[in-house]
Design a protein around this nucleic acid. Structure first.
Length: 566
RNA sequence: UGGGGCGUAGCCAAGCGGUAAGGCAACGGGUUUUGGUCCCGUCAUUCGAGGGUUCGAAUCCUUCCGCCCCAGCCA
């Protein structure tokens, strides 16, 4: 076994099973239903299942749990395959569909009927519900529970042949209507559904339910450890029951773990799809979505997501992980690999009054101080520049060490400049431009006399700059746990953050960015990490902000404001 | 008031009878041509609460409390 990554209780169980010789190898599976897009909660399961298989030198299957044609769609199959691959996992030959086993499931059902362990029930859905009892009262036996084997066989055959209407009959396991575990009260295992299936077409008009199909799929694939989320804990006795009754050779062990929740977002397919349908976001791959396609478009790397899944751990307690951990993971990854570049989001014009008007020069800038092998580039400098509007204050607060009247700062990789004059709109008072002088001795950014400046600003030469649009994303929800709102009877979408997307259209970026390709990631110095969005067009780049850099100044300023305000 | 789970710091999470790992966040300091990175330091006398066993308990026993899941022909 590879000795990498943190351990968890599931890994320990597997180690024990291997040690005891219960298995020679480990076989896990990731079993999505193709009824929606994958999100970062699925990533936890994917990393767990594939990761465990990898650690123990076993294998992990990708299996589509497609037993309900009403909800499923090949488009989701496509996207799921894409997303799992993108995350970095490979199932080799082991791509399966529960629907491939439909005939075998059917034969197993025949076997159950013959054993007297399954029967065709002709109660209607409402009656079935009533007969089931409640959490505190036992259920009552169905009127059809004691039907003869021959009759059951005949009716089930009829169900399969389409002789009946939907809802007219179901096949049920005959277990115990008085069980304290409601799942054991004669669960439905086949229902009539006159629906075309994305893979089997109109071959079937009866479809197996999850509880029945899942354990058998696992068994047929020789899965050793079947990992699922906590809400299936109550289903485990059923999982085991089917496999025992049918006396299969392979009886996988189901182990449950807690699904992932992230604060300030939602993590259920239903809620995510509602956001899409109600146009709160622009699609499943909207960069604000916690879907894998959304994170990918936002600019998250697969490695950062895998790292995140490593850090959150695997346990059985309900959890809501802090978004800041995800942000930490992407910053850590991008810090090492993203080329640095300069871009000004909210431009303010600076004129270097003592710099020759027609002149320009190329200054050398480091591409990544964390990785010397990424080399350097030349950035053009001239008399008129753009700096960030936020980097100038006419009346600077304490601890502000950027540009202000009379102040000297460094332009990164360029010169020291001193602010001499502020040009304002007479009517509005808006600052139009700032006039500065530069010290030619400080070319490159350091002074021969050894004098220091406190601030270093990013900049872009106005003559050489390229225009760009930048999309700034914030958390989707205002409240940390929107899913909870719904349980309190509120509409979870009520807590949506109206400012989750802000588009800045007049950004100016250094000319080298012209060559950026869709999906390329950069650090805009002092601002954050950005990724070129697919909606970019030649000459009209659109950058998504993946995540900001940590901003100590913002923190200080906020603190000062709250201190003076209170 | 049935059954199944879970409770260790603001958020995750180790811990498996020998005296509370680690990460994120937060806070303080150092380095720095990114207020970034990096480095150093601080952050649980206590593990939901009480009682018991023990030389010794987050770990064992017991009572209580809180939270989550289950009454789809969804998964």
């Amino acid at each position: 076994m590879l000795n990498t990554g943190p351990s968890n209780f599931i890994q320990e169980i597997i180690s024990q099973d291997l040690l005891k010789g219960k298995h020679k190898t480990v076989v896990t599976r990731f079993p999505p239903e193709p009824n929606g897009y994958l999100h970062i909660g699925h990533a936890k399961s994917i990393c767990l299942n594939f990761g465990l298989a990898e650690k123990f030198g076993g294998r992990c299957h990708l299996r589509f749990d497609d037993t309900n044609p009403r909800k499923e769609d090949p488009e989701f199959v496509r996207s799921i395959i894409e997303d799992v691959r993108w995350l970095g996992y490979d199932w080799g030959e082991h791509l399966y569909y529960a629907s491939d086993y439909f005939s075998r499931f059917y034969n197993f059902a025949l076997q159950l009927i013959e054993q007297g362990r399954a029967y065709v029930c002709s109660l209607n859905p409402e009656e079935i519900r009533r007969f089931r009892g409640t959490l505190t009262e036992p259920g009552k036996n169905s009127l059809y529970r004691e039907r003869g084997i021959e009759e059951n066989l005949e009716l089930f055959e009829g169900m399969k042949r389409g002789l009946f209407q939907e809802g007219q009959h179901v096949l049920r396991a005959k277990i115990d209507m008085a069980s304290p575990n409601i799942n054991m009260r004669d669960p439905v295992i086949y229902r009539i559904m006159k629906e075309d299936h994305h893979r089997t077409g109109d071959t079937w008009c009866i479809y197996p339910t999850y509880d029945y199909a899942h354990c058998l799929s696992d068994s047929l694939e020789n899965i050793t450890h079947s990992l699922c989320s906590l809400e299936f804990e109550d289903h485990r006795p059923l999982y085991d029951w089917f496999l025992e009754q049918l006396n299969v050779e392979c009886h996988p062990r189901q182990i449950e773990f807690a699904r992932l929740n992230l604060n300030y977002t939602v993590m259920s397919k239903r809620k995510l799809s509602m956001l899409v349908q109600k146009n709160h976001v622009q699609g499943w791959d909207d960069p604000r979505m916690p879907t894998l396609s959304g994170l990918r478009r936002r600019g998250y790397t697969p490695r950062s997501i895998r790292k995140f899944c490593d850090l959150i751990g695997v346990a059985k307690s309900e959890n809501i992980v802090d978004m800041s951990l995800l942000e930490y993971c992407i910053r850590e990854d991008l810090n090492k690999i993203a080329p640095r570049v300069m871009g000004v989001l909210n431009p303010l014009k600076v004129v270097i009054t003592n710099y020759p008007p027609e002149h320009s020069e190329a200054l050398e800038a480091v591409n990544n101080p964390e990785d010397e092998s990424m080399g350097t580039r030349l950035v053009p400098f001239s008399r008129e520049l753009f700096i960030e509007r936020e980097d100038f204050r006419e009346d600077p607060p304490k601890k502000y060490f950027r540009l202000a009247p009379g102040r000297e700062v460094r332009l990164r990789y360029a010169y020291f400049i001193t602010c001499e004059k502020v040009i304002k709109d007479e009517k509005t008072g808006e600052i139009l431009e700032v006039h500065c002088s530069y010290d030619p001795q400080t070319r490159g950014g350091s002074a021969p006399d050894g004098r220091k400046v406190k601030g270093t600003l990013h900049w872009v030469s106005s003559r050489h700059a390229r225009k760009a649009a930048v999309r700034i994303y914030d958390r989707l929800f205002l409240r940390p746990n929107p899913a909870q709102d719904e349980k309190k009877g509120l509409d979870f979408s009520e807590a949506l953050n109206p400012e989750s997307l802000k588009e800045m259209r007049d950004c100016q970026v250094e000319p080298g960015l012209e060559k950026a390709g869709i999906g390329d990631r950069f650090q805009f110095e002092r601002l954050g990490y950005f990724c070129l969005d697919p909606e970019s067009e030649p000459g009209r780049p659109v950058f998504n902000r993946i995540v900001s850099l940590k901003d100590t100044w913002a923190k200080i300023e906020k603190k000062m404001q709250s201190e003076s305000g209170s």
